Simulated scan of single mutants.
Amino acid sequence: MSTRTVEQDLGRARKGVGVAGPGRPGRPAPRRPGASTFTLLAFAAPAIILLVLLNLYPVLYAGYQSLRDGSLISAGDFVGAENYLKVLSNPEFWASARFTVVFTLVGVFGSWLVGLALAILLKTKVPGSTLFKVLLLLPWVVPVVVSATAWNWLVATPQSPLPILAEALGLGNVLFLANPTLAQVTVCVFKVWISFPFMMMMMGAALASVDNNVYEAARVDGASRWQELTSITLPMISRSTYISWILMTIFCVNDFPTIFLLTGGGPVNATQSLVVMAYNTVFQNFNTGTGVAIAFVMTLVLIIISVALFRQIRKVQIL
């Protein structure tokens, strides 16, 4: 039997000393990796391996293809960085890059402005606001094939409604998809039309987190609506705004069906973005190495833009 008494144990407890022996109060003993840690790793290993195989392997193999002059059925010979040099020296690549930049800027900021305006409008008590929200989501919910078909019916031929309307207004025979400039404008407007519901949802969720008491205090101080927007609303939803910009930038740069279904990249490659150019290079010209090199250049640009916007998010979190 132990010689320690209950009084001794209580005295040791009052001094912060455990019954089992002395220790440092307030400092738990360091945890050492045991069987439970290895068990968790063993359970997680299959999922980690699967993610690596599904994501890392295709990227590595695509990088391997970009360094060769192969086709869809043959890997070809190793050419090193020749494909990248060929891409960067191709005037068609830079023309597609310029349109991709314009398409992305209009798609991101155009849809953001429309979505923010609608989110602010629907935040007020408007009769039937729920029905309006559902109807405004339709351009995003409807499959892009259906939307592109509807827009083709509206603008594609001289017998379409919008060319007939333009001719009736005295603007002449306006062919929206045959004129390079009008085709670019049409594609950008179409992108804003199918993307603003996403921005409206993002901005609506961000606005819902802003306390109304802040607006009431600003009104008491005599702030105008514009001052409320620029000094309260935009700063307080800036984190959500940057996140939505990142997502929409990725969507626009990688948007293949919108352009391909509406114009196919024409006329005379006026609406050919980088992703459409990469598709044509690989699946129509059967030049896999150059097409994959274009895709890697796109990926590098997206990474740079995403990192820049994520730094802005971190600054907002610090503030």
Rank of each mutant, 00 (worst) to 15 (best):
S160N: 10
P139Y: 04
G204M: 08
P139T: 03
S160Y: 05
K191F: 14
W226E: 14
L137M: 09
L207M: 08
I120Q: 14
M199A: 10
V141R: 03
S224P: 08
V134D: 02
V189Q: 05
L154Q: 08
L175V: 06
W193I: 03
E216Y: 12
D221P: 06
S160P: 04
A168M: 13
N179P: 00
C188G: 05
A117E: 10
A150Y: 02
W140N: 03
L165N: 12
E167W: 10
E167I: 07
F132L: 10
L122A: 11
S195Y: 09
V126L: 15
V142P: 01
L162A: 07
N152H: 14
L169H: 13
T124I: 15
T230G: 12
K191I: 11
L118N: 04
F190M: 05
M201N: 11
T130W: 13
P139L: 02
V187C: 03
K133P: 01
W153A: 12
G170D: 06
G222Q: 07
G128Q: 05
L131F: 10
M203W: 09
S209D: 13
K191L: 14
N173Q: 15
I232P: 00
L118R: 04
G128T: 09
W151L: 08
L177M: 09
D221G: 08
L182W: 02
E167C: 11
S209V: 11
A205R: 08
G128I: 06
K123W: 13
E167T: 12
P180Y: 00
V134C: 01
I120G: 09
W140I: 02
L154A: 11
A156Q: 13
L138H: 02
V144Q: 07
N152V: 11
F132I: 11
W226Q: 14
I194F: 06
L182Y: 00
V155C: 01
L162R: 06
E216Q: 14
E216C: 11
L182H: 01
A150P: 03
F198Q: 00
A168I: 09
N213K: 07
